[in-house]
Simulated scan of single mutants.
Amino acid sequence: MSHPTPYPIGLAGEITRQLNLLADHLVQLPPHEAMQVIARILDPGDGLLDGVTGLVSVSSTFAQTQAKRGVLPAEVWLALGRATNDLDAIGGDLDEHRATLRRVGTQPATTAAKPPAPAPLVVQRHR
């Protein structure tokens, strides 16, 4: 007799499927709708990126406990900690652009008389 998949494992699988579905839809959306989705993903405190960062952080804490018990190598805990820090830094880098994405996403989808000027693809970062 097969064992049912525990709920959290099934949930992780379903979330992964939903993320893949979201990515598939995102590439097909009109620009203003895509901007709305991206702004929602990056919404601080309630967006997908912050949720993933929190999940990796909780995973790091769990791995730390398991590493201290000798169940996991310390390298696993350290790698998850670095991943948490990297995701947090990415979120910080995107903070300054969230308002722009929200603004562009809420503009009407009408065609303007004068199209916006293209931006250079290589820019200097301001810190």
Results as ranks from 00 to 15, higher is better:
73 P>Q: 14
103 R>A: 04
105 G>V: 02
110 T>P: 00
88 D>M: 10
53 T>P: 00
74 A>N: 13
91 G>P: 03
78 L>G: 00
97 H>E: 09
80 L>K: 10
58 V>N: 12
57 S>C: 07
60 S>Y: 13
93 D>F: 03
54 G>V: 11
59 S>A: 15
94 L>W: 06
79 A>C: 07
62 F>L: 15
65 T>Y: 01
93 D>E: 05
76 V>S: 02
85 N>Q: 11
100 T>E: 04
114 K>H: 00
107 Q>A: 10
76 V>L: 03
69 R>K: 09
75 E>K: 08
70 G>K: 03
71 V>N: 12
84 T>I: 08
59 S>F: 07
94 L>H: 03
114 K>Y: 01
108 P>T: 10
73 P>S: 11
106 T>R: 15
54 G>K: 15
70 G>D: 10
73 P>A: 13
112 A>G: 00
76 V>N: 02
104 V>H: 01
75 E>H: 06
111 T>D: 15
51 G>C: 02
116 P>G: 08
87 L>G: 12
86 D>G: 03
82 R>N: 12
68 K>G: 13
61 T>A: 12
91 G>H: 11
97 H>S: 09
79 A>I: 06
91 G>C: 04
109 A>H: 10
74 A>E: 15
66 Q>L: 08
68 K>C: 05
69 R>T: 07
63 A>G: 07
113 A>S: 07
69 R>N: 02
100 T>M: 09
81 G>S: 13
56 V>I: 14
104 V>C: 07
103 R>K: 04
119 A>I: 12
101 L>T: 00
54 G>N: 15
96 E>W: 08
69 R>Y: 03
106 T>V: 03
56 V>W: 10
78 L>V: 09
86 D>N: 10
